[in-house]
Design a protein around this nucleic acid. Sequence first.
RNA 1: UCCUCGAUAGCUCAAUGGUAGAGCACCCGGCUGUUAACCGGGUGGUUGUAGGUUCGAGUCCUACUCGAGGAGCCA
Length: 433
Amino acid sequence: MACLATALIKNLGRHIGETVTVQGWLYNFRSSGKISFLIVRDGTGLVQGVMVKKEVGDELFALAGTLTQESSLKVTGTVREEPRAVGGYELTLTGLEVVGIAAEYPITHKEHGVDFLAERRHLWLRTPRQTAIIRIRSEIEQAFRDFFYQRDFVLADAPVLTPAACEGTTTLFELDYHGDKAYLSQSGQLYNEATAAALGRVYCFGPTFRAEKSKTRRHLMEFWMIEAEMAYYDIDDNMKLQEEMVCYVIQRVLERCGQELKTLERDVAKLAAVKLPFPRISYTEAVALLKNAGEDFTWGDDFGAPHETMIGNSFDSPVFVHRYPTAIKAFYFKPDPHDANVVLGADLIAPEGYGEIIGGGQRLDDLALLEARLAEHKLPREAFEWYLDLRRFGTVPHSGFGLGIERTVAWICGLDHIRETIPFPRMLHKMYP
RNA sequence: UCCUCGAUAGCUCAAUGGUAGAGCACCCGGCUGUUAACCGGGUGGUUGUAGGUUCGAGUCCUACUCGAGGAGCCA
C-alpha cells in the first residue's frame, strides 16, 4: 500500500475529504458481522474508523476481527465529519496494518478499584481521563515557565542531593554519599536565596522528597515544586506576584485545555471565578474565623487539614493567610517589624478543600538574628555557614515561595486524590511500577 | 505511629451460620450505524493467610498480611 500522509487525531478537522493514516492503538472494537467500528487512540484523541465488509474485502475485514483491545495499528481512511462519532470526525477505512496484537488487556472499560489500577499505572495512563490530567499538568508547567520567562526570571535549578536538612523539621530520605551522609532535597529554597543574590529574580523547578509517614489524598513521598526567590521583594510584593502567577496559569488552562477539562467533568465556572486580587487575612484573623465557625482553636497552634479546608471554603478564590506565630514557622522567616510574635510568612490556601498550595514569605536578612534562630532551632551551624555568607556579603530584603505542582494540578483538575496528578506517584509503601 | 473500614471468579460486586452467584472480560455463534453495542451458548473459585467456635463457617471469634480513608506533618 502506498504510504499516505499521517495525521494526529486532534488535527483530523484539517483533513476533511483527504485520505490519511492514523498510527495508534485500538481503544474499542464493535462488529455486526458485515460492518465494524474500530475506535483508535493515538494519544491526542479518539477517532472511530468504519470498515464495511463488501467494500474492503473479506481478508481485511477478517483481519480487523482479530484485533484485541490495545493492539497497535495503523489505519488508513478518508476523513469526514460525523456528529454521531466521538470527536466529531470519522474515518471510512480502506487500509489496516497490524503492528502488534495485544495480549488480553487487564484494564477494561468497566470499573476498577484503585489498588488494581495503581498496580498497573503504566497501563492506566492510557485511559482518556489519565491522559487528560497529564496534558493539563504539562500545560500548567509550561504556563509557569512562560510566566517567569516573561518577567525576566532566570531558571536556576537547585540540587537534589543535599548535605543537610533545609528546615530541620521534616523527615528526609538519607543515602550514602561516598561515605558521607546525604539527603534527598526537601526544598531548593536556601539555594534559591543564593542564586537570587546572583541573578536578582530566580526560580527552580524539580522534585522534592519527604520521608514523612503521610498517607492521605494530599501527600506524596516525591513531589514537584516550583520555587521562586526575589531580591528586594517584601511580603506584599511576594503575594502580588503569586496571585498574578496563579491567575495566569488558570487562564492558560481554561484557554487551552477545554477538551481535557470536559473529559474530567470539571466545573470550570469555579476556575473562572478565580479573580485578582486574592483575599488576604492574617493568621490572627483566620483564628477568629475558625472560632466564629465554632472551632475550638488556640492562638499559636498550627492549622490542621480540616482548619485549612474551613478557611479555604470561606472564599471563592485562593486566600492568603499571612503573619503566622514565629514558633510554628521555620527559622528563616523575617519577624514582622510591628509585632515580634509573628513572622512575614504567607501561605496560599486553595478553594474547594484543596488546602495549602503555596508556602512562602519574606526571609530573615539580618545576620545576627539569623544566627540566633539557627541556635534556637538547634540546627548545625557549620552546615549553614554558606547560607550565613549571603547575609555577610550584601544582604538585601528578599522573599520567595514554593508551590506544589501536584496539589495545584489536583485543584485545577478537580481530582479527589493526588495520586492521579503525576505519571508515577510515589506513595507511602507503594512505588511500583 | 495512631484511628476507622475492607479483602469472595481476570475485574466490579452479591450470597439469614445450611448446595458459592450475577454483570463485564475471555472463547464460540448471530447481527450493515454501533456508542461501556446488543442477542444466544461456554470456560472460569484452596472465599487474603493461620488458628478457633460449631453437626455445619464466605458469614461468628483471635492473630497476622495486604489495601483504602482519615489524623499528625506538610506542598
